[in-house]
Design a protein around this nucleic acid. Structure first.
Length: 225
DNA sequence: CCCTGATTCGC
DNA sequence: GCGAATCAGG
C-alpha cells in the first residue's frame, strides 16, 4: 500500500485525535504500526505521550479506559521537522468537504484566565461529588473507527474525517456503530473539546475521602465485538 | 510478557 | 520516502 493523500489525511486525523499507531494501522490496513509511526514522524506529526502514559491494556476486544488524555502537552515538537505540506487534494469520493485550512497545531496554551481546570492524568477521570455525578461519563476510546464513508446515519454529523484542530473531538456513541460521530462544536481554545465537554473531560481533583470509591463503569459497559 | 511511541538504517 | 528492526518506557 502506498501513502495516498487520503490515507495521509486519515492518518493525520486519527493520530491527531489520539488514536494509537496500532489502531491507525488497523484502520488503514496494509500497513504496520511502525509504518504509521514512521509516516507520522515524517509528516511532522508525532510527539504525543510517547511511551504511553496511562493507557491501560486494552489490547484486543477489551475496550477500557478512556484514551482521551490530551492533558497538558506544552511541549509540541522541539524539532522543526517538515512543515507538513497541506496540499489538499480533493479526490475524496464523497467525503464531506471538511475544511482543510488547518495548518499545524497551536501549542496548547493553558488558559491564563478563569478557574483553572485541572486535568487529571490519563486513565483516571476524577468524578465530581456524588450529587452532581453525571452517569454517562464517557470519552469512549475510539477503538474501531467508522469507515470514512458517508452514510445516511452520519449525514450532517461530525465524522472522523471532519476532525480538525478547532472542533470538539468528543466522541458520541460508540466507534463502529453507524451513527458514531464527534461533537463537532467549536473547541475551548487550547483543548481538544468544546467548553461543555472539557467540563466532562477535566474535572477538579477532589480529596480522596470525598471521592466515590466505586467508580461506576465510565460508560455503557464493555462492548462486545 | 504485554503494550506504547521513537529512532535507526538498509532498502 | 518507506518500514522492519530495534530501542526505550510503562
Amino acid at each position: 500500500m502506498s501513502w495516498t493523500d487520503e490515507r495521509i489525511e486519515t492518518l493525520r486525523k486519527m493520530w491527531d485525535s489520539g488514536l494509537t499507531a496500532t489502531q491507525i494501522a488497523e484502520e488503514l490496513g496494509g500497513v504496520s504500526r511502525n509504518a504509521v509511526i514512521g509516516k507520522a514522524h515524517r509528516l511532522g506529526l508525532a510527539s504525543r505521550p510517547s511511551p504511553v502514559k496511562a493507557n491501560a491494556p486494552e489490547a484486543k476486544a477489551t475496550p477500557t479506559a478512556p484514551a482521551a488524555a490530551p492533558a497538558s502537552a506544552p511541549a509540541p515538537a522541539p524539532r522543526p521537522a517538515a512543515p507538513a505540506p497541506r496540499a489538499a487534494a480533493p479526490a475524496a469520493p464523497a467525503a464531506p468537504p471538511a475544511e482543510a485550512s488547518d495548518a499545524d497545531d497551536t501549542p496548547p496554551a493553558p488558559r491564563p484566565d478563569g478557574p483553572v481546570l485541572r486535568s487529571v492524568g490519563p486513565g483516571g477521570f476524577i468524578r465530581q461529588n456524588p450529587g452532581e455525578q453525571a452517569p454517562p461519563i464517557a470519552p469512549a476510546p475510539p477503538r474501531r473507527l467508522v469507515p470514512a464513508k458517508p452514510s445516511k446515519e452520519i449525514e450532517g454529523k461530525t465524522t472522523l474525517l471532519d476532525l480538525n484542530d478547532r472542533i470538539c473531538k468528543w466522541p458520541l456513541g460508540h466507534p463502529g456503530e453507524p451513527d458514531f460521530h464527534f461533537c463537532g462544536d467549536k473547541v475551548n481554545p487550547g483543548f481538544p473539546y468544546c467548553v461543555e465537554h472539557c467540563g466532562h473531560a477535566y474535572q477538579a481533583q477532589l480529596p480522596r475521602r470525598d471521592r466515590r470509591p466505586p467508580p461506576p463503569l465510565p460508560y455503557g459497559g464493555p462492548r462486545v465485538r
